[in-house]
Design a protein around this nucleic acid. Structure first.
Lengths: 142, 142
DNA sequence: GGATATTAGTTGTTTTTGTAACTAACAACA
DNA sequence: TGTTGTTAGTTACAAAAACAACTAATATCC
């Protein structure tokens, strides 16, 4: 009947809806418990998992604009979750690292996030789960 | 080595990145050619594909908050892409419908969107493609 | 060495979103 | 019929994001 375009089958739309649903469901953990914004949580998670690095590096890895990173870093610093360390060989770079409190927040939220993820993925078969995450990673890095 | 939480495997993060990548790639069509915002494009696509309906109905279908819909409808009306029609039996409801120009924009963008989607999905096997879209639909309606 | 260009990161301004309070129309029911 | 409650949609204000202009440090090249 209809050969018209159907928004409900449009990948960007489906991705946005799924992203929004899951993000909203998860945000209360970092927002409610630590007063963090999404970018702050991401910066924390990067430093926690991948080790100390500069703002630039986080931005490249996560695909976040430098102004967002800059503000997230300032907020995390203010919360005493990270410290900055200007590098001697090039004083434009600053190495960012988690404090004790930052690491503790990362461990806490990381545990909750892992559970949250497991619960979400539980509704799919293992092979499906693999296909889904691989596909998303592929699409994200187009 | 690491049993720590890995952001790069976290579904909400992957979904957000994939959503952002595809949305950015597609937005120049409705933004560049018609000066629309994402919500406007979605409202247009709903009315074009599913027929005339009220703002409330669009919001429920698309999971968009009523204030966003209200603003998108005002913008589309200002662009002469839709008209409002207050219903006689309950004057709180207004039926929204596309104008000639609105339908033409929908046809145009719908064609481009279908091509865009096909190209994106082309990198996956048909069975994979089905799994992916089904999964996204499921996740979005949790 | 000094002018010019790049780079990392910040700050200011404008858009867009989110949230809450509001208006207008209708419903329910004493 | 009139008081109270609910619903569709709008508006006002606050939070966040996008974009552009900026500062400070370093690199390049004459």
């Amino acid at each position: 009947m209809h050969d018209e375009f159907d928004l409900n089958g449009f990948l960007p739309y489906l991705l946005n809806r799924a992203a929004e649903t899951t993000s909203l469901a998860f945000q209360h953990h970092y927002k409610g418990r630590y007063g963090m914004l999404r970018t702050e949580w991401r910066v924390l998670a990067h430093l926690g998992r991948y080790g100390d690095m500069t703002a630039k590096q986080i931005g490249q890895r996560a695909g976040i604009h430098k102004t967002k990173i800059s503000r997230a870093v300032a907020a995390l610093e203010h919360k005493r979750f990270l410290t900055r360390n200007v590098l001697a060989d090039d004083r434009r770079h600053e190495q960012l690292g988690l404090t004790k409190a930052g690491r503790s927040a990362f461990n806490d939220l990381g545990r909750v996030a892992a559970e949250f993820d497991a619960k979400l993925m539980d509704q799919f078969m293992p092979e499906e789960a693999q296909i889904i995450k691989r596909a998303l990673t592929r699409i994200a890095t187009l």
